[in-house]
Design a protein around this nucleic acid. Structure first.
Lengths: 326, 326
DNA sequence: CTGTTAGCGCATTCAA
DNA sequence: TTGAATGCGCTAACAG
C-alpha cells in the first residue's frame, strides 16, 4: 500500500510536509499543499491507523464489554453508544464477556483501546487497576460503580422508578407483589433487586423472600419455566415485576400456557421496555429505560475521562409506560 | 506502562530474548525463560497490540458493517460472528453503516482491520477495490455477492425456502399472497423479493405488483402504518409474507388495531424467526434463519480468505417453523 | 515554509 | 542460546 513516503516522493516533498497537510499541523505553501493532495489522491493513500496509534499512544478505539447481545436492551444500548462514538471518530469494538475469560482481557485489549465501557459488567479489581494504571478509563452503564475504583456509572434511580411502579400496582389493589431476579449473586442486575426491596419497604409492603424468584441467565425460556413451576406448585401472588424484559416476556409466555389471565389473575410489569414488550399479548406495562440518551451521556463521560476532566455518576430519569398487563 | 525493554532490563537479558519467550519463536534456556517470565509477572507487562500490528502488518481486528443493530436478526448474527471471532483471537468492531458515510470508511478502517464482514450491506466498487488491493478480504452475510468482486456470500436459498412456505400457504387454501419488501431499491433485502417472485412463479401463482407493499426502513412502525393504510383503502389479500420479521410483527400489530383476525382473515409469515416472533399474538409462522451456525461459517470463510485459501459462497439450509399465524 | 531525524514497541535477521 | 541492529509508518521537535 501507498505509504507516506511514496506520497512524498511523488509530490517531490519530504514526508514531514505530507504529515503537515494531512494533520493541518503546520503552515504549508498553498501550491505545495495542492501537489501533496494530488499525490495522495492519485495513490489512493490513507493513513495507517496502527502506525499512528503507536506514535500517538492513542488508538481512537473503545471497547464495550457486554453480557449478552441477544438481549435487545443491551443491543439497544450498544447501538446508541456506537452512534455517539462514531460522531467523535472513535471506533467501537464489543466483546461478549464471561467472567472466566477475564484474564484474557488484559492481553486482548492492551494497546488497543483508549477506554472501556462496562455494559452491565463488573471486573475484578486487579483487571481494573491494570488498565487504570495506563490511564485507560472505564465507564459503567446500567450497573453501579465498581467498589474502590473511580468508575463513573450511568443508570436510573431504581428505588424511585420502582416506587412509582409499586404505587401504580397498589392503586390497582395489589398487595402481594413478587419480583423475578437473576440468579447469579454477582450478577450486575442484583442492584435492581436491592432497589426493589427498598422501594417495597418505602411503600410499606416489604418484599418477602418467598416472593422473589430467581431465574438463571435472565433469559426468556428460563423465566417461563420458573413461573410454570412456581404456579403449578400452588404458590400465588397478584403481581410480579421482572428485573429485565426478556424474563418478563417469559412470565407472560408461562401465563399463556397456564391459562392465567393477565392482568385479571396476575399483573405483570417489566423494567426496560424493549420493542418486544410492546408486542406481547397483552402489551407490557414497563419502566422505560431511556436508551436513546444513554449513548450520548456515556460517550460524553468517556471523553471527559479520557481528557482527564472530572466525571461523575449520571442518574437519568425514566418513564413509566402503562400498557395493559397491569 | 511497562515495555519490553524494561522487562529485558529487569531480567538481565536483551529485548530479543523477551520476544523469544513471549512468542515461543526461539530456543531459550530454561533458566533464562524463568527469569523473563518472572520479570513480566512482576511488571504486569502485556504486549502492546498497536506496535505488534504495525510490525506484523496484521491487526487481528475485523470489522462488521451493519445496517441496524436494533434489528434482533442482525444483532443475533453479529453475536454469533463475534463468538467465533473471539475463538480465533480476533477482536471485532462493528460499524453502523449508512451509504452516505461510505467515503469515511476508508480512512476509518485503514490499517485497522484484517478483514471486513458485510452484514446485509453492499459497498461501492471503489471502496471494495481499495481494501482488496491491500489484501483486506470481504465476507458478505445475508446478502448475495457484490457485482464484479470476489466477495463470498453466506445466505439461504431463498427461492427454495419461499417455495416451501408458499406451498404451505397453498395447502391452507391461499391464492392471494402478498409480500412486504423494503422500499430502497438498493437495499440488500431486495434479493429476497426477487427470490419470492421466482418462487411464486414456480408455484404457478405469479406475484403481481399490486401485491407487493414497500415499507421504509424495514421497521415495525412503518410496516404497521403501511398495512393499516392499505387495508383501510379496501385492498384485500389472504396471506402476506414479510421480508424481515420486524415488518412482519408490524403487520400483526396493524391487524390487531384493525381487528383483522389472524389467520382467519389473513395469514401472516416471516422470513427470519427472531425471538419476538415467537411471542406475538398469534405466534408467527416463519422461515428460521440459522443464525446459530452463520457465525461459525462466516468466520471460517473469513479465515480462508485471510490465509489466501480459496473460499466460495455458502448456501445454508433453513427450517420452516409453523406456529399459528398461518 | 520545508527537511532531517528520533523514536513509539515490537519481530526478526544476522552475528556471535 | 543470546544480543545488536534494523525498520514497520507515523508525528513532532528542531534546524534550516
Amino acid at each position: 500500500m501507498a505509504t507516506r513516503k511514496e506520497v512524498a516522493e511523488k509530490a517531490g516533498v519530504s514526508i514531514a510536509v505530507v504529515s503537515y497537510v494531512l494533520n493541518d499541523s503546520n503552515y504549508v505553501k498553498e501550491e505545495t499543499r495542492r501537489k501533496v493532495l494530488q499525490a495522495i489522491e492519485e495513490l489512493g493513500y490513507e493513513t495507517n491507523m496502527a502506525a499512528r496509534a503507536l506514535k500517538m499512544r492513542k488508538t481512537e478505539q473503545l471497547a464495550v464489554l457486554i453480557n449478552h447481545l441477544g438481549n435487545p436492551h443491551e443491543a439497544g444500548l450498544l447501538l446508541r453508544i456506537e452512534e455517539y462514538a462514531a460522531k467523535h471518530n472513535y471506533v467501537l469494538f464489543f466483546q461478549t464477556f464471561h467472567k472466566e475469560q477475564e484474564s484474557r482481557l488484559k492481553a486482548l485489549l492492551n494497546g488497543r483501546v483508549d477506554g472501556i465501557f462496562l455494559l452491565g459488567q463488573s471486573l475484578k479489581e486487579d483487571t481494573l487497576h491494570h488498565f487504570q494504571k495506563q490511564n485507560i478509563p472505564f465507564v459503567s452503564v446500567t450497573t453501579p460503580a465498581v467498589r474502590h475504583a473511580a468508575v463513573p456509572c450511568i443508570d436510573l434511580d431504581w428505588v424511585f422508578e420502582y416506587s412509582r411502579l409499586i404505587r401504580l400496582l397498589k392503586e390497582k389493589g395489589h398487595n402481594q407483589i413478587a419480583y423475578m431476579a437473576i440468579r447469579d449473586q454477582a450478577h450486575p442486575l442484583s442492584h435492581r433487586l436491592s432497589a426493589f426491596r427498598r422501594a417495597m419497604d418505602a411503600e410499606g409492603m416489604p418484599l418477602t423472600e418467598e416472593n422473589i424468584f430467581y431465574c438463571d441467565g435472565g433469559v426468556l425460556p428460563a423465566a417461563c419455566e420458573t413461573i410454570k413451576h412456581v404456579w403449578r406448585s400452588g404458590r400465588r401472588f397478584s403481581a410480579i415485576v421482572g428485573a429485565n424484559d426478556l424474563m418478563t416476556a417469559g412470565i407472560l409466555a408461562a401465563c399463556s400456557e397456564l391459562g392465567v389471565d393477565i392482568p385479571g389473575q396476575l399483573a405483570v410489569a417489566g423494567s426496560e421496555d424493549i420493542l418486544m414488550s410492546s408486542q406481547t399479548a397483552p402489551p407490557l406495562t414497563v419502566i422505560h429505560y431511556p436508551r436513546e440518551i444513554v449513548g450520548e451521556i456515556a460517550m460524553k463521560v468517556m471523553l471527559d475521562k479520557i481528557n482527564k476532566h472530572p466525571a461523575s455518576d449520571q442518574i437519568l430519569p425514566a418513564r413509566l409506560v402503562e400498557r395493559s398487563s397491569v
